[in-house]
Design a protein around this nucleic acid. Sequence first.
DNA 1: TTGTATTATCAAAACGTTTTTAGGCTCTTT
DNA 2: AAAGAGCCTAAAAACGTTTTGATAATACAA
Lengths: 326, 326
Amino acid sequence: MPVTMRDVAKEAGVSIKTVSRVVNNQGEITDSTRERVLAVIERLGYRPNLIARGLVTQRTYTIGLNIQDITNPFFPEVARGVQDMARAHNYNVFLCNSDDDPQEEIRTLQTLADQSVDGIISFPNRQSTVRLFAEENRPFVLINSDMKHPHVSQVMTNNFQGAKLAVDHLATKGHTEIGMITGQYLQESQRVLGFEAGLKAHGLTITPSRFLSGMPKFERGIEATHQLLTEHPEISAIFTFNDLLAAGAIQACKKLGRRVPDDCAIIGFDDTQLASLIDPPLTSVRLPKYEIGQVAMQRLLEMLEHPDQDFPPIHLDVELIVREST
Amino acid sequence: MPVTMRDVAKEAGVSIKTVSRVVNNQGEITDSTRERVLAVIERLGYRPNLIARGLVTQRTYTIGLNIQDITNPFFPEVARGVQDMARAHNYNVFLCNSDDDPQEEIRTLQTLADQSVDGIISFPNRQSTVRLFAEENRPFVLINSDMKHPHVSQVMTNNFQGAKLAVDHLATKGHTEIGMITGQYLQESQRVLGFEAGLKAHGLTITPSRFLSGMPKFERGIEATHQLLTEHPEISAIFTFNDLLAAGAIQACKKLGRRVPDDCAIIGFDDTQLASLIDPPLTSVRLPKYEIGQVAMQRLLEMLEHPDQDFPPIHLDVELIVREST
DNA sequence: TTGTATTATCAAAACGTTTTTAGGCTCTTT
DNA sequence: AAAGAGCCTAAAAACGTTTTGATAATACAA
């Protein structure tokens, strides 16, 4: 039923090869034949079958984007950055949520490989599973992972620095008793390390029981804050792994009768849309989310263009956005 | 380089067809040969090439999801619903943002068709562009569109009813001067109609200048509310097309010195995560977002299973969630 | 032994492209 | 007149599968 290249060739009275050359405009072709062929293509509504083309060229013009969870407000902007850039270069994007579950990540990457994607952008949670796939020469862009491997490129945001900025900010405001609610993503480690480094730099003690972790979701933020503030009433500031947890923290403070920021300051991470909308507006470490997606896709395109080249990691800056929660 | 079916066949000493049958476990095969083949598959790490398979079976195990904008907090949950259901049936999802731009929608659908997706789930903004693609027998699920066409199925939420509920709620609270900030999506019409029907039911007059529209984003909410309240100071309640606009409206009220809900009540639509996080918590019409995605994908799967069957529209209920902004 | 059904296998065609091979025709240039 | 460029043709191989049609092996009944 669909119009094939053979149909076009027959109708235009040229060889299949000529049609192919017109479609991919390569090689020397007279204007007159080109126009004749194009007219027939237009008239028949011919569209090349990308599946068939992909089979022979080994290029599918698809990529995979592996994230933890699109309903975490950090990811939509990143995804949008990837997709806008992809679309501008005629690529399509498979979006996959693997929920920070190593099993799911393996399955996701496997499926993407089965679909013969040209490349993959991933927020990895375990290095090992990615390594498995990096072996196959398939271009890979990892966000915030320091894995070194040929055909693997990195986009890094300075989360360590971001966490340190947050502590600096709190310390200069006079806070000495600071707690942290962490998440459980891989990226977390840098934020924790930065937090600890910040404490140390200001001569503050690191109290293990002041670190609580869990799924980086709103409800967990409420819960953890409740626990943190009842076990450590001396805490006057809380730094959270992301804005959702911070939103929960604010909510918990309200319930506990602690005013924010006067009785307890709160700093989030990511600076999602949420931050400016909640009350009080949230101080947060801004990541250039859209840009992360953009440059990750851009890098992937470069890697596809120059398969044997080695690319240095891309570093993106973070920024502390001070609002009224501190 | 990749392991092919031919390799497996040679290694196991059987025909390619036998391998194929083992892989798709169909047809009669002795246990002994099956096991021998499976062992070789395991040993060589063979994985069937879905592109090649798709070329012959015309089934790619991919679908397209066309939405307006993933950074609109309404969509991530829907997308997650689609993806979880898709993944459970070994489907992969192309996510496309077409920003409510008819040109982009055409391009998106065209690209998806080029990629030979098995089906498409779409939030259409113009009926005509979808009709173009519905002709091709490709299963289509439309959200909140009343287009009737073979091979096109609908998932509907009762937005008319939702808007009416909102007005009812405001009217029983004693509000008589109510404004609306609309969006510009197709789904909007039902919300506007429901709003007007609500006004009429309570004997309130419909004032055209009290309708303002624009991109359904936060900034636009601020802007429109400002305009609405300065041009119509008598307004004591505002109903918005979605939660983002409502969040903007609240912000604008604060700036104008109007307390919410005492001086101006606000009702949103969608009941996104936002609603419970902002201050005051937002009264909003809840759509079953995750479920929309789930059932849309489920329906698509049914359509793929039974290509010639006709399916009735699926209707999902909405619900007014009353919080403190009214 | 023959015939027949059942089961297991194989070789080849097909899917719709791109690419390779092996040219042919018409100009222009030497 | 020969050589080379430029533009094209036709046919076939390749990509990695599934599927078709044919055949071989086995089992059982007569």
